[in-house]
Simulated assay, not measured.
Amino acid sequence: MNRFRFLSRLALLAPGLLLAACGGGSGGGDNASGGADQTVAVTTTMPRQQVFHDTVEAWGSVDPLHPVTINLAHAGQVTALAVAPGQAVKRGTTLLTVTPDPATRSAFVQAQNAARTAAGDLKRIEQLAADRLATQSQLAGARKALADARAALEAQRALGGANTREEVKAPLDGVVTTLQVQVGERFAANAPLLAFTPTNALLARLGVQPQDAAKLRVGLPVQLREVFSEGHDMPAHLSMVGKAIDPTSRLLPVLAEVPAASATPIAGTALSAVIQTADYRAWAVPRAAVLHDEKGDYLFVVEHGKARRVAVTLRHPEGEVVGVQGALEASSQVIVQGVYELNDGDAVHMAPAEGRAK
């Protein structure tokens, strides 16, 4: 009877024991796989020290540095125009042709006659003085009269009276900006005939944000670029930093002289510029390695098989390689791929070759 009860109870308990055994085996497997899931596959790189530049952005346009207004010291009349506004010319190119004013021509002829007469008077006085019929004072007076007459003649010649036709030529390579006379038009002495811009004398007129004024000084390097073209950068240097904000643009005006070798844009071209204000050293790391949250910029390094968070300051954010400053060393293993899956202290392992290539 007792044996029958024991066997009956054993039959009732067997399914429970079997389930318990199965359950225990399953639980052990889950714990093992959970530990493996907490290890993150990463790739790393070594940081390196590099010199970076603080920069200030600016905008503006190209203007002539030394515009030239061409005029003549005498009055006259325009007989021909050889150029048009905006035309590029070489040094010595004829710009326009003029004839002197009749009054200028008349003054030259009068001075020419006066010099001829003074020369004849001197010759006559010299003959009289040789025969002791003229005094030395008369001889000196005749010589002075001839000298004065010749000086007056040269003055009239310089004023253009000697020419019946005069060609006005370009003093340098450049561009004719404006024409201020027309064919047949009479002009007064020293009246502007045309405006001329030398090619190799351009000035970049720029504006920067007022808060950047403290960073700027004369002589800083500038990289200029045409806004609406694919042109190359043009090196320049700051030649002036303004002390008052422009009331129209609300920007601080600065000037940069464009070197002759880089003077490719035409006057009026819109420009953007980058002014290099200071040099500093920072750690160069891939952009993908740097993260940001409410505590600031940071990255992860590998220490003893775990990810350790390192706070950094992002000083140079442009480009695929950025500049950061923080507690890094040249031997630090900065995590690049896998950073978005990490928390401080997570276990990590190096990704296989296929993962690193990807």
Rank of each mutant, 00 (worst) to 15 (best):
F300Y: 15
Y298M: 01
Q110A: 15
K90C: 00
A130K: 13
F196C: 06
S106Y: 14
T248Y: 06
L122M: 11
G86P: 09
K144V: 06
R124W: 09
A142R: 04
E303Y: 01
E257N: 12
V208P: 08
P15T: 14
H316F: 08
Q211S: 08
A147S: 13
A152V: 07
T93P: 01
S249D: 01
L122Y: 07
A162M: 04
A357F: 13
Y280R: 03
A236Q: 01
P171N: 15
A201Q: 10
G25V: 11
D233M: 00
D346A: 15
M234H: 01
A88N: 12
A134V: 04
V339G: 09
L128D: 06
L238M: 06
Y280Q: 03
A152F: 03
V78I: 10
T117V: 14
Y280H: 12
Q127N: 09
G242S: 07
A213N: 11
A111M: 06
A149R: 03
A189F: 15
V348Q: 07
G323Q: 05
S239V: 10
V274N: 01
A261N: 12
M46S: 14
L299K: 00
A32I: 14
Q333I: 14
A11E: 03
A20L: 15
H237S: 11
G268C: 09
G92R: 07
P171R: 15
L194W: 09
L128E: 05
G161N: 00
A118P: 13
H304G: 05
A21C: 12
T93K: 06
A347Y: 00
T177A: 13
Q87S: 09
N343F: 11
A84E: 15
A353V: 10
H232M: 00
N31W: 12
D246S: 09
T277Y: 03
A170Y: 03
G184M: 09
T45E: 12
G25H: 12
T94G: 01
F52S: 02
Q127E: 14
E167D: 14
G305Q: 06
T99G: 00
T197K: 00
A357Q: 15
L252Q: 04
L122Q: 13
K358D: 08
Q180N: 15
T44W: 02
K215Y: 04
P102D: 05
A142I: 09
G242Q: 01
A260F: 04
D212A: 13
D30Y: 12
A130W: 02
M234K: 01
